[in-house]
Amino acid sequence: MTSDEGLMLQFRGGSREAFDELFDRYRETLFAFFRRRLESRARAEELTQETFLAVLRATELYEPRSPVRSYLFGIAFRLLSAERRTTNRAATVRERGLVDDGTEQALWVRQALSRLEPAERDLLMLREYEQLSYDEIAALLKIPVNTVRSRLFRARIALKEYLEPAGKETSNA
């Protein structure tokens, strides 16, 4: 199987098929990235398309030394940041989803995540859902790797507390 980077180079060489293959590989990943962070499914779809359009527009800017995955998430994260600035949603995770888009447990996770500090939440979600490495997260958020590690640890410990059943939480208080 051709690597992502190989496909990107083929695409730069003019291969539409290579782009389509990349689209197939990252379509759902990027959609999930936006979907977990925006209330509107339609908006998540729009921004996923925008990410690929940005790749189309700026194909000459991609350099082989940069992993395609980081490149795509870089674009997606910037689009998300711009979207948040535009709509004043200020890094809020979807607290109210559509009725049919998740289980009770999923709702519980979403609510717990919404209680985290925005910066820690972003970081934790990038790690858990997008499976980015510490280095990738550091590059994306423009912070040192050590900061990634310490924030990630804090975020996980905090989330563990928020995920505890309410009864235990109150009895501890």
Binding site: S15, R16, F23, F52, L53, L56, A106, L124, R156
Partner: peptide
């Protein structure tokens, strides 16, 4: 505990998008 947090987070799944590429599949860009 840390593994438990990771496992719990997996409960939040996202439906499939069903998106199609921004442009048609047949054309070769060049």
């Amino acid at each position: 505990d840390l593994r438990g947090v990771s496992r719990a987070m997996l409960a939040w799944e996202v439906e499939e998008s069903g998106l199609r590429p921004p442009a048609g599949r047949s054309a070769n860009l060049r």
